[in-house]
Computed example of a mutant assay.
Amino acid sequence: MSSVTLPEISALGEFAVAVSAPQQAVAGDSLRSTGIKLSADFGIAEIDAERRRCSISQERLAAEACITPAWYRRVLRRPGGASPVLLHKLRRALRSLARAKAAPSPVLELTRWAYAGALERTARFYGVTPEQVAETSPQRGATADAHWRACSHARQAAIYLVNTGAGIGQAKIAALLGLTPAAVCLALKDVEDRRDDPAFNEMIFGAMRAMAGRDE
């Protein structure tokens, strides 16, 4: 992972706004490069087959369609229970996710750069390395293992800095890290709760100052 300093990302919010407009302008054209085959009469079985072909998880598709993963799996088991409205939402969500995977995304690259810089600081605070954080799966779930907790807390704090300090949206962060938007939202809440700890709050405050280009 390349070394990135937080003062270098003080203008991230402005840059993200600047690149989002042309990104949207080519959204229609980018669908042609996804290779996705979604007919308007596709049912849940065909949608799920395309989901697997595009290497999109059930959790990501469900989150994009604003339903729960459990609901999606329930519909898969009982295809006749899928309403036309739900199928339309799922087809639209799958197109959106396939487009995002296929199209070059300057905002995603920007998010990756910002996250790398934030993670260097938060990992150091928790006594781990960015590489160790990357090797620790966030999907594993809460555990009593001290190393896992340290990596998880470092990741959450970096997410918080990218979202709150750099102004990058939760959906972009979720896309970068392979998380659901709900998981990113929970990470932000957990960090807010931990800011009652003076040492942790001072680290976050110092990072915010650095991101704003001010000396600590």
Rank of each mutant, 00 (worst) to 15 (best):
P106N: 08
C151T: 11
G117S: 14
R121G: 14
L94C: 11
S96D: 10
R121Q: 15
T68Q: 00
D145V: 12
S83H: 07
G117Q: 12
G127F: 01
R124L: 12
L86K: 09
A100I: 04
V75A: 07
Q139P: 02
A142T: 06
F125H: 15
R140N: 12
R99P: 09
L97T: 07
R73N: 03
P130Q: 03
S96F: 00
A93P: 15
Y126H: 14
R73G: 01
L119F: 03
G127Q: 05
S152C: 08
R92I: 11
A116W: 02
R92K: 13
A134E: 10
T111H: 15
R149Q: 15
L90T: 15
G117R: 12
V75F: 04
L76P: 04
Q139K: 11
P138A: 08
A146R: 15
L90Y: 09
R95Y: 01
A100R: 15
A102E: 13
A134V: 00
S137T: 11
W113S: 11
E131K: 14
P79L: 11
L76Q: 08
F125A: 04
L110R: 04
S96W: 01
R91V: 02
L119N: 09
P130H: 01
A146Q: 09
Q132K: 09
L86R: 02
P84C: 11
A114M: 09
G141T: 10
L94F: 13
S96R: 10
R124P: 00
